[in-house]
């Protein structure tokens, strides 16, 4: 089951700053909803642990992430794969950055594929839940970037 998402927002931060934020797992990963921990393996690879669940199906997802594309300072794209309760997930998430006045426009898009029991028993809930979680991530990302607007 594919969950597709996209959107854009603007922040009063320099392009480079936003880019640095997005490619730093230690700063980016904690914004994920239900974040539990991150392990950085090297400059391109890290693992994130997040709590996931729908109704009674709950567990911790271990997602291996790779910075698949890093075009400083305008594009960052992640690919991830992991196991969740009763299933697996693969995802692509990309950010295209462009100047917008004094700040930066962040255009984000992605797609998650969920496989397995989770989809089988809760497929109807996944689309709205997935979109809700992604919106949370984007809201957190905006909040984090805006918290330091104008600082650098």
């Amino acid at each position: 089951m594919a969950i597709k998402f996209d959107g854009e927002f603007e922040v009063q931060r320099k392009l480079e700053d936003v880019y640095e934020f997005l490619v730093d797992p230690q700063r980016f990963a904690p914004l994920l909803p239900e974040f539990e921990g991150v392990s950085v393996h090297d400059a391109e690879h890290f693992s994130v642990r997040v709590r996931v669940g729908i109704s009674h199906i709950k567990g911790v997802a271990d997602v291996k992430m790779r910075l698949a594309e890093a075009l400083r300072p305008e594009r960052a794209r992640y690919e991830g794969q992991g196991s969740v309760a009763g299933g697996n997930v693969s995802m692509i998430a990309g950010f295209d950055l462009s100047p917008a006045g004094d700040g930066t426009k962040v255009a984000w898009r992605g797609e998650a594929q969920v496989f397995g029991r989770l989809t089988s028993v809760a497929g109807g809930l996944l689309q709205p839940l997935g979109k809700k979680q992604i919106q949370k991530l984007i809201d957190s990302l905006q909040a984090a970037l805006r918290a330091s607007e104008g600082i650098s």
Binding site: M1, A2, V114, T119, S120, V121, G124
Partner: peptide, 14 residues
């Protein structure tokens, strides 16, 4: 089944 082969009707809810 969805397009990637997940069976969407595996319980008596569906």
């Amino acid at each position: 089944y969805d397009e990637v082969g997940n069976m969407l009707t595996s319980t008596f809810s569906d």
